[in-house]
């Protein structure tokens, strides 16, 4: 999948509340929109969110998008163990998942049925000076692994999701995206 450029890609991004999974979902959707694709983004919310896991579904497509809800995704970004338990079995055969190996034991990642890209997101973010940017590392890795949008489009879209008062954080986040992409190569 990484080799050819798909016209349609859906992804479930999941992790703990506070890991910024909704933020990178938005960022990916903006990048898709800015790259001229149709996009949808839908979060889970309410009761399910209070349980401690958050997830969202993003679809990027060259044709108009039907269902914004995907039960069996083509790809996933998995930021913690409960999310792996929940979504890895649902991933389509030969699907791609980014697995945050800082918080998930690598042996738990399925490497036969699906393609798992293990990235120590928190570790890389720590080295960059802020473990809260683990989400950006993961998204960088995802974009590199799937080639759904150019990394530059994602970096350029940071201004869409980071409010003006935090503008000075954009270069750091861009670095985290790049580091993630490098880790996935």
């Amino acid at each position: 999948m990484a080799a050819k450029k798909p016209k349609h890609l859906d992804v479930i991004i999941a992790g703990f509340g506070g890991q910024g999974v909704l933020l990178i979902g938005n960022l990916l959707a903006y990048a898709g929109m800015n790259a001229g694709l149709n996009v949808t983004y839908i979060p889970v919310y309410g009761a399910e969110m209070r349980g401690g896991t958050a997830n969202c579904t993003v679809i990027l497509s060259s044709e108009d998008i039907g269902s914004p809800i995907v039960h069996r995704p083509q790809s996933a970004i998995i930021m913690n163990r409960p999310s792996l338990d929940k979504f890895q079995p649902r991933l389509l055969d030969k699907g791609v998942q980014i697995v945050n190996s800082s918080l998930i034991e690598p042996r738990l990642a399925d490497t036969k049925r699906v393609k798992s890209v293990l990235v120590p997101c928190n570790g890389i973010a720590d080295k960059l000076g802020n473990s809260r940017m683990a989400n950006m590392v993961a998204l960088g890795a995802f974009v590199a692994a799937t080639q759904i949008v150019p990394l530059a489009a994602v970096i350029k879209s940071l201004e869409n999701v980071i409010s003006a008062s935090y503008k000075d954080l954009i270069p750091k986040n861009a670095q985290a995206l790049e580091a993630g992409a490098a880790a996935a190569q």
Binding site: N38, Y41, I65, P68
Partner: peptide
């Protein structure tokens, strides 16, 4: 609730 919560351009 789907339409209300989902985002699109």
């Amino acid at each position: 609730a789907i339409l209300g919560q989902m985002k699109e351009p």
